[in-house]
Design a protein around this nucleic acid. Structure first.
Lengths: 209, 209
DNA sequence: TGTACATCAGTGAACGCGCGTTCACTGATGTAC
DNA sequence: TGTACATCAGTGAACGCGCGTTCACTGATGTAC
């Protein structure tokens, strides 16, 4: 649909845009990354997309809906990034490590968006199905990997191992994005650093608890 | 100074407040916790403190300065909370665990403030000496505890162990505050849960790297 | 102890701004006949 | 193939709002004499 319309819409000065919804999300993303989440206003997004300030209302009910779509989009990209990082890695421990690296690298490369995805502005649309589904996909990757590492563990043990792995990797991502990790150690090779940190976590220890 | 002036100032309808600076920070804190960081405007803070909207300018250069003071204040309380949690615990591992629990419990009890302390609004005043000092104090507690656990480690190894401990505990705090940890496992006894998660981290493993 | 005065910490009105959202509109598109 | 028309996706002007900040002011405080 979008592509078809785009053939006409992409011409300069075209009245109809073709895929404004997508363009607005992209514009919002650009603003988030370059100016910070606080600067994302519906008007600024419209401006960035080269469209009148009322135009977004034909594609989103309100500002929140745009943010929700942006965040959901981010979560999809995020899960993709993790999948790509772990592609072809079948050894359970290696796979868990690779997913962690994907997690942190994505957050590092898209710091402001990552923040928005987990920020308080999200609380209002956590309920939205699109958002929830996208947000859960990334976590499911982690959970399955932890699962594979602990074939004999109970449900509760898996949950704990999962939580620890998630927290470690999430904390690393957040602290790096805030510049605090960089103040503590050399993060020029962030993937290697992440790997070192995650190696300190012994997920199998959960079997002793 | 404050207390002296307060004797008069605390009378209802007093023209001079006595310790408005402190009162404004408290008001801001109340708003952060009850309404969220987005609702903290200088005008709202003045309103909450029962004072005219121009009054804060006698105590803070601008909105940012108030936020910086609020965050610095938060970091001081935060370090205190950790200290109290670890008070009298001298066994290195136990102490590190206790500090972690203090870290997470504080973040859980003051979720919105904790978010603000690490939020993007802080980036603008990380340079401020008061803020930096307060923010570093909490971290120093962690570092010293890790240090005590690893008497034979190199500087780099300590840094890595520190980073991992910090990330794990920070991630736990953030994920809990976002309600995500609660969706994964039972967090009714948050201290116990935190303890379980941190026990999966083997800081001594860093000696093998 | 009393008084003049400088200083401090408030007040209230006003400024300009960007925001979210609504509205009546209009140009472009696609479909029924 | 051509035309009338419904629908869709834009426009631009306007609304009311709360915000950060400034200003001239005034009441309270404390100090010098």
């Amino acid at each position: 649909m979008a592509a078809k319309a785009k053939t006409k819409g992409s011409a300069a000065g075209a009245y109809h845009h073709g895929d404004l919804r997508r363009a607005l999300i992209d514009a919002a993303r650009r603003i988030v990354e370059s100016e910070g989440a606080a600067e994302v206003s519906l008007r600024a997004v419209a401006r960035e997309a080269g469209v009148s300030q009322a135009a977004p209302y034909h594609h989103f009910a309100d500002k929140n809906a745009l943010l929700a779509a942006l965040a959901a989009n981010g979560f999809r990209d995020f899960a993709d990034a993790m999948r790509i990082q772990a592609k072809g890695v079948s050894d359970p421990d290696e796979r868990l490590g690779a997913l962690g690296v994907g997690y942190v690298l994505y957050a590092a490369k898209n710091a402001a968006l990552f923040r928005l995805m987990h920020g308080p502005s999200c609380e209002s649309f956590v309920a939205s199905a699109e958002f929830k589904e996208a947000a859960d996909a990334g976590f499911a990757l982690l959970r399955d990997a932890v699962d594979a590492c602990l074939p004999k563990a109970t449900r509760t043990q898996i949950a704990h191992a999962c939580a620890a792995a998630w927290a470690l990797v999430h904390g690393t991502a957040v602290l790096y994005a805030d510049g605090r990790l960089g103040a503590l150690l050399d993060t020029r090779n962030l993937a290697a650093t992440t790997r070192k940190l995650t190696q300190l976590l012994d997920v199998r220890q959960v079997l002793e608890q």
